[in-house]
Write a protein that binds this DNA or RNA. Structure first.
Lengths: 148, 148
DNA sequence: AAGTGTATCTTACTGAATAAGATTCTTATA
DNA sequence: TATAAGAATCTTATTCAGTAAGATACACTT
């Protein structure tokens, strides 16, 4: 059974998470704009940075885009030199998409300012607290993985 | 100075947060689809639910849409009965947009399944841990508020 | 009272994403 | 092995969400 304290905590946490998510979308837009990329293209670069080389089909699942939509985005990104398609050794119908290393640095560099901002915010948290927070996100990502 | 443990924690946390954000966008899309709403319209309903009645200009800031884009979205939502525009007592050029209460319930109901999923995930966390997590999100939302 | 600035809306247009179908390869079954 | 059914990606024509530029109405400053 839930404690009285918990009954207050849960709605507050729920609201805070929703606000966080609302802000995140906006922030991604800003970063994309800085790099003169479409928000969707930025999303793809993020996914590729997080997941490593994956198939277009996987990117469709993770982005919610249609098969044809993925093709168009990848064409744009490949033309601009951000990604490269290579043959998938496991399935000759398929393709593996990977970030071009040199460009990857330029992308992640744009996150460095927020990353340092993020880290300075975390100064107020002990190592134990950070472990708790990490546990939270790990649980959340398992409950709702990027491709489900 | 950072502990050795912290040096490992920070990148892991950073990655977990990014995965969480990537999954959130996808999830919002799914909920919007359930309600037969455009993702952007869903975003607006969320913002209105979180912030209460606000001006179209505020919604433009929080969503990243242009002024004209906001007008179009609000026209759609108002026509469908989700929101209502009323005159802003503080500024007669301006307008206040609010959720229609009856519809608001139908919207938030669609979040209940994930909310209960979310809460069952939190069973594994103590009250103290939840407070830490809440503190994290509160800090993050202050560092990067919904309209900055 | 005039001029400048701000909030919202209108209109014509752009282009991102979709849907449907084609192509190429894989897997299952006879 | 041969055939059929299924899956992964790409192509093409099309749609419609969002933008840009400008109009309107009101608010502030001097």
């Amino acid at each position: 059974m839930s404690s009285a304290k918990r009954k207050q905590l849960l709605p507050a946490l729920n609201r805070a998470v929703r606000l966080f998510i609302a802000g995140s979308g906006l922030y991604s837009q800003r970063v994309a704009e800085k790099l003169s990329l479409h928000p969707t293209d930025m999303q793809f670069l993020n996914l590729l940075d997080l997941l490593g080389p994956v198939t277009p089909g996987m990117l469709a699942q993770c982005s919610g885009l249609s098969s044809g939509g993925v093709t168009v985005v990848l064409d744009r990104l490949e033309k601009a030199g951000y990604v490269r398609r290579s043959s998938n050794p496991d399935d000759r119908r398929s393709v593996l998409v990977g970030l071009v290393a040199a460009r990857q640095k330029r992308v992640t560099a744009n996150y460095e300012s927020i990353q340092s901002q993020f880290e300075s915010m975390l100064v107020g948290f002990s190592d134990e607290e950070l472990e708790t927070i990490l546990k939270f996100f790990a649980s959340a990502n398992t409950t709702r993985p990027p491709n489900s």
